[in-house]
């Protein structure tokens, strides 16, 4: 790890100014991924701007009746927030399905969104990786790729995004508020992360110097139920092999609202629009749910050793939608 200079920002504007004033600057939130990557030599900032103490640590009601989650809110606090748990169980469940208790105590909302892939080749500076070092090649595609993407990958990168929380946010139509040198803007959570294309080094649509301020989640849909389910190699403390976040409302046997997103399948949380199209207006039954999953996963292009992810994601989606449909109908 190379030496670096350090400052603590008092306001978001100050943080952005500091970023602009330094070469190779990075924002430091909880640090649970950045410090890790600096030790690996994957990240080597020359200047760190500590944004963990910014006044962005509140979960507040929005005028519309949703929740605005400050970027510095810790994952464990967000997961435990009674209002969030009440309105959006999927978000709390996704957070609690990730990492460990002590990591969640430190990791921030903004940092969770910005965490980088756990692709082993990305983490190993001695192997080629287009995401880490553009133009060097992708070691994973022809290498160990059981954990890699089945949707939306490119010849340049087959990495997956590791966040659970981001999958829930994608399904919740959340909005990400950012502040940059050119001012404030808002990006839909489902569009916040990118597909790799030929620029896999860019994980998100953030422009240089942009800082995540908050994530806003709209109020829940009438009668909707939401949940998160994740499959993993061990019972806890493991990244998703595949996961699904779902929001579903059913009235008189018909799906009136559906939002579905997959984790562990792609370079970004995979909002399943094709599946949603099948769902809304259809009879809420296993047949519909299977059709919906197939509509989305038909586009999957497994690499060989990760073929299992397609039936796994399908099964997770059908199972979760079935559960939610039952609850929605019962008003439970």
């Amino acid at each position: 790890m190379k030496t670096f200079t350090f400052e603590r920002a008092a306001t978001p504007d100050q943080a952005v100014d500091a970023f602009t004033a330094h070469e190779r600057a990075r924002y430091l939130g909880g640090g649970t991924n950045l410090v890790d990557l600096m030790k690996l030599g994957v990240e080597s900032p020359e200047h760190l701007i500590d944004v963990s103490g910014l006044p962005l640590d509140e979960v507040e009601r929005t005028p519309e009746g949703g929740w605005r989650v400050g970027a510095a809110v810790r994952n464990s606090d967000l997961a435990a927030h009674p209002g969030v748990r009440h309105d959006h169980p999927v978000l709390s469940q996704a957070l609690l399905a990730g990492a460990s208790g002590q990591l969640r105590n430190v990791a921030t909302t903004g940092g969770n969104l910005l965490q980088r892939t756990r692709c082993p080749y990305f983490q190993d500076t001695s192997t080629p990786c287009n995401k880490r070092e553009p133009g060097t090649g992708c070691s994973a595609r022809g290498g160990a790729h059981r954990d890699m993407a089945v949707l939306g990958h490119s010849p340049h990168c087959v990495a997956t995004h590791p966040s659970d929380m981001a999958v829930a946010l994608a399904a919740l139509d959340a909005q990400v508020e950012v502040l940059g040198p050119e001012g404030r803007r808002t990006v839909p959570a489902a569009d916040f992360h990118r597909l790799p294309g030929d620029t896999p080094q860019q994980d998100t649509v953030l422009r240089p110097g942009e800082l995540v301020l908050a994530v806003s989640v709209p109020p829940p849909h009438e009668g909707a139920r939401s949940a998160y389910r994740k499959a993993r190699d061990r019972a806890s403390y493991a990244f998703a092999l595949a996961s699904v976040a779902a929001v579903l409302a059913v009235r008189e046997g018909t799906v009136t609202h559906a939002a579905l997103a997959f984790g562990g399948l792609a370079h970004r949380p995979w909002r399943a629009r094709a599946a949603e199209e099948v769902l809304v207006g259809s009879a809420a039954n296993a047949h519909t749910f299977a059709r919906a999953a197939d509509a989305e996963l038909g586009a999957a292009r497994p690499l060989g050793d990760n073929e299992f992810k397609v039936p796994l994601a399908r099964s997770l989606a059908v199972n979760l939608l079935t559960t939610l449909a039952d609850r929605s109908e019962q008003g439970a």
Binding site: P120, T127, S139, G142, R234, Y237
Partner: peptide, 19 residues
């Protein structure tokens, strides 16, 4: 290709957790 172990850390090499 690389000749190295892929699962070299405790996040990828899954020692059983308490759960």
């Amino acid at each position: 290709a690389t000749g190295g172990f892929v699962e070299r850390d405790l996040a990828s090499y899954h020692v059983p957790a308490c759960a």
